[in-house]
């Protein structure tokens, strides 16, 4: 079984994010790391291939400056190889443009299964996976938790507002997986060493046959016209519990007429 996992490399979420003052785009020029949301897709792919008795897990990523430290993390977890799309014309690409690029890269691999995270931790549009399925004219199951493969059919639970739906679909299919669906493994020392030698194919737009005016800022056909500071919420009374803080809460609830 051949599985492709879409992975995004993002600025470290532990550091404060910043917009470029001239372009109003999120700054991505520093070191990028594997988006935690995507580590679930990588783990799920590894588990499904193991359960199927063998196969291959390939990664597909789009990032500036041939950045691949996040890809190396996923390779160290156990993925076999990767395609990295990097091109200066991709700066400012929106969700649809990203889907066109990733779909073109995925198309070269003819996978049985495509996995992605539900949404990235920086842009969080939650639309790219479904758009990739649209570009490739494939069925999809978004918001999937619990995935299993039975012959040529995938079975999944799809999260809904009220609970979940049981879904079945014939391969090939794209699934976006929710955080927490599996426990991502930590790369072992051996895995980290092995990852350094795993093949990463670097491609640009020309290699993928994509016209540069269909992606990037031009292809996005939208413009950030201003950025404003949001109103700060003031903090109120902060007290340290010395054994009777519950009485202050009860009093406060009384003032609010909640009790």
């Amino acid at each position: 079984m051949k599985v492709v996992v879409c992975v995004k490399q993002i600025p470290d979420p532990a550091l404060p994010g910043e917009l470029d003052p001239t372009t109003n785009l999120l700054k991505r020029d520093g070191k990028l790391i594997l988006d935690e949301s995507d580590s679930y897709g990588v783990e799920m792919a590894l588990q499904l291939v193991e359960a199927a008795g063998g196969g291959e897990v390939s990664l597909v990523s789009m990032a500036p400056n041939n950045e691949m430290s996040g890809l190396r993390t996923a390779l160290a977890m156990g993925a076999d190889d990767a395609i990295l799309v990097s091109d200066e014309n991709l700066a400012g690409t929106d969700a649809l443009g990203t889907a066109k690029v990733l779909a073109a890269a995925i198309g070269r691999l003819s996978p049985d299964l495509i996995l992605a995270g539900v949404e990235s931790s920086d842009g969080y549009t939650g639309t790219v996976p479904e758009m990739i399925a649209g570009v490739l004219d494939l069925p999809s199951v978004t918001f999937a938790k619990q995935i299993s493969i039975d012959g040529d059919t995938v079975k999944a639970q799809r999260q809904t507002e009220a609970g979940y739906d049981d879904i079945e679909c014939k391969l090939p299919v794209l699934l976006s997986v929710t955080a927490g669906v599996v426990e991502p493994r930590y790369p072992s020392f051996k895995g980290i060493m092995a990852a350094k030698k795993k093949p990463v194919e670097a491609l640009d737009l020309q290699a993928l046959g994509i016209e540069s005016n269909t992606v990037g800022v031009v292809g996005a056909r939208q413009e950030t016209i201003r950025v404003t500071e949001a109103e700060e919420r003031e903090s109120g009374e902060i007290i340290e519990d010395d054994g009777d803080a519950h009485q202050r809460i009860a009093e406060f609830l009384g003032e609010l007429k909640v009790v």
Binding site: D137, P139, V141, Q157, G163, I167, C169, K170
Partner: peptide, 13 residues
């Protein structure tokens, strides 16, 4: 082909 995923059950929590 894009519409071939089917719902076989619905669980309301």
């Amino acid at each position: 082909n894009s519409g071939t995923a089917i719902v076989t059950g619905r669980v309301i929590e």
